[in-house]
Design a protein around this nucleic acid. Sequence first.
RNA 1: GCCCAUGUAGCUCAGCAGGUAGAGCGCCUCCUUGGUAAGGAUGAGGUCACCGGUUCGAGUCCGGUCGUGGGCUCCA
Length: 841
Amino acid sequence: MSQPQLPAIQPDNGVADHFPYREAEAKWQRRWVEDRAFFTEQDGDKPKFYCLEMFPYPSGKLHMGHLRNYAIGDVMARYYRMKGYRVLHPMGYDAFGLPAENAAIKNKVHPADWTFNNIREMGIQQRTLGLSYDWDREVATCHPAYYKWGQWLFLQFWKKGLVYRKEGLLNWCPDCQTVLANEQVVNGLCWRCDSVVTQKFMPQWFIKITDYAEELLADLDKLGEWPNKVVVMQRNWIGRSEGAEIVFRVAGGALKGETIPVFTTRPDTIFGATYMVLAPEHPLVNRLIARSEQEADCRAFIDEVARMEKTARTDDATEKKGVFTGAYAVNPVNGEEVPIWLANYVLVEYGTGAVMAVPTHDQRDFEFAKKYELPLRLVIQPENTEFNSADDMTAAWEGEGVMINSARFDGTPNQEGKKKVTAWMEENGMGKATVNYRLRDWGISRQRYWGMPIPLLHCEKCGVVAVPDDQLPVELPVDVQITGEGSPLVRHEGFKNATCPECGGPARRESDTIDTFWDSSWYFLRYIDARNENTAFDKNKANDWMPVDLYIGGVEHAVLHLLYSRFFTKVVRDLGLVDVDEPFKKLVTQGMVTKDGAKMSKSKGNVVDPGVILDKYGADAARLFILFTSPPERDLEWSDEGVIGSARFVDRVYRLVMRYAHGWKTPAAEGPLSDGARELQRRTHQAIAGVGSDIETRLGLNTAIAKIMELVNEMYRFTAEGDVAASDFPVFQHAVETLLKLLSPMAPHLCEELWAALGREGYLMHEPWPVHDPAMLEADRVKIAVQINGKVRGTVEVAAGASQDDIWQAAAEEPNIARWLEGKEPRKKIFVPGKLLNIVV
RNA sequence: GCCCAUGUAGCUCAGCAGGUAGAGCGCCUCCUUGGUAAGGAUGAGGUCACCGGUUCGAGUCCGGUCGUGGGCUCCA
């Protein structure tokens, strides 16, 4: 036994117990910057991987959700780099928006100062996490160099006819003389002055996203790597329904003959329409009720509805209320005059803002009709009928049946009737088949300061005129007072007054800024060519990098941001600027980070500050904990003990490697491998195979880490004696170096530090990802479970390729098993090679 | 009401193709230690929510029940 050995260094002999994360993290982060280590490669021979995390709003500090989001993305970026991809992994800031103005009012700081300070602070925290971003591509949407191109793109939309102006309904605070966002309306009151908020029509800019509704819906089928629930949410949001638009006319009075189109999905029930309902905000209402007996009642009702909060208005529990207008409309199919009502359950934004009410076959209409004693007429008779007339009904019948009381259509099954009625109405000019969407056009106007100015001018002679390209960007003026009352841009003389580029006359600059969702709808394209001063992004580069291969973010953006980005991509494609249909190939919606079972929030007082955790345990431990504790898409329950556990694991790896680092270049000795080394070798290859497939196929970062932990445990078992035989050394060496490679995407500082400690040249992260040898996965001898009638009664150890007969022989000799076989005749044997033998007796 | 998740060790989660129930944390015991919310080695702990079915064999597949969480919901 005079084999040479690699002696271990004992902890008390110069090896620190703990990974000195403060020094090590600072050192590696500095080197990465100096060496521009995450500079995006443009080598065309390598496959590309565009890894993107949703950029944050710069609120000032990172929260746990950010940490989780970035940790997941960083592992993927680092993994794919080692796998030989050129990876684009950028970061930026969604930097326009209301909080900056609120801070300005509260703390008397300029929104720009507040925002850029926050960006600086968050950037420092992100660097402290060791995230591998290409910072050369950083964008901030509030920077003129970014929004210049946002404005340019807006003008392309404008030229394409996708931008229009119409009256839109807004929350309005009469005291502050300002428009309020939904979240600024608290219990129907203004968040600042507690005045009652009203609904007000104001001219607004809209973008015709509905032009793309059909494609946005159809292409959901292309999103095979999106979570199903997000696809479902988008499908519901778009809300396509087929039906008919039917034209009613006002029966008498001053407006006689005026058309009121309604949308219905049930044209088969048109003969059962016994009244009509308009939304209180319907454009015809004012003229309809003017000088009528009911005018006062109607006005009171309209006011009441206008004062209701939008959310309360659309709540199921809200009582259906209405008022008769005094006017009548003519049902085109039978010439009947039906009363016109106003009701709170009809929404001006959906369909035509008017409905034909069929109380027998629509539950809402039924309840309303009963309450106000309006007539009912049964027109769909169900097959096994429970009622023969509307008098028998206790609820609307919304199911199938045969048409009755419907003139020429009597006896027609109602599904067939839908088509027939629609066709007949089309022939007679009463209506037409239409498709209606729940999706509405995108209202982008914000009467706010801290946003991208909409690059349009109002000229008295020429109307609305686009700002010429060479005058972009339209910069936000800096010298403003933010008071919260109205938009400072309206008051700013220098900003407001402009010259019309067409006639040279005076023009007024548009003072609305744009919805911040506009800014975030194309940032993934700007990253691709972030410093281009000549265009928004180069087409070839965009075609090279798009689509984003992996997009990670919170599920709260399932509809709006992701839908707008999809829409934007399609428009940009139609403008000829890029050739992809969809922006995000694979989407991962990460779960929340919770504490004590609830989402972290200031009001609950259960917030854990990532900054404190980073300082106390280091970036690698924080990353490992947050990755290990839960799979990405599930919620993650924060646990202080868990972080300590991760910190211990970091130390455990550190100690293991440091004990042997001193002799890393010792030459190996010839000789057979010990059993322990063979086992270690097998486990090493199993870990390579397992970690790679976990990361790649199902983003199982938690299970990947568990497998790495198991490998570390095995290495501790292997080195329990202390010294390693030189003949086993190559296996051990391979195991340790593999461990560092597998762990480096999750714990990059630790692994780089140890790689260097082993005397290795260059960055570990530039090493290729290890490859496993399938032949190494199998053990020489295997344990086979022996079952009697499906229950495990013992195990036998046999050579790896042992046959059924060999195992049967061995099993019969095993006393435990023999006991169960005694006096019984084996009827059947089920053999699973390498795993088990089941004997049925 | 509808849709989608989810229920496995005290806790947080694995268990991919039905085939001996796993990881980390926590806990027990022992060892080590003038670096101590320390380290090492052992171990305990699970009728896999419940009921039924398919199967030689079911956390795993099927049906039902119960629990928990989330989303949508006057959309004509």
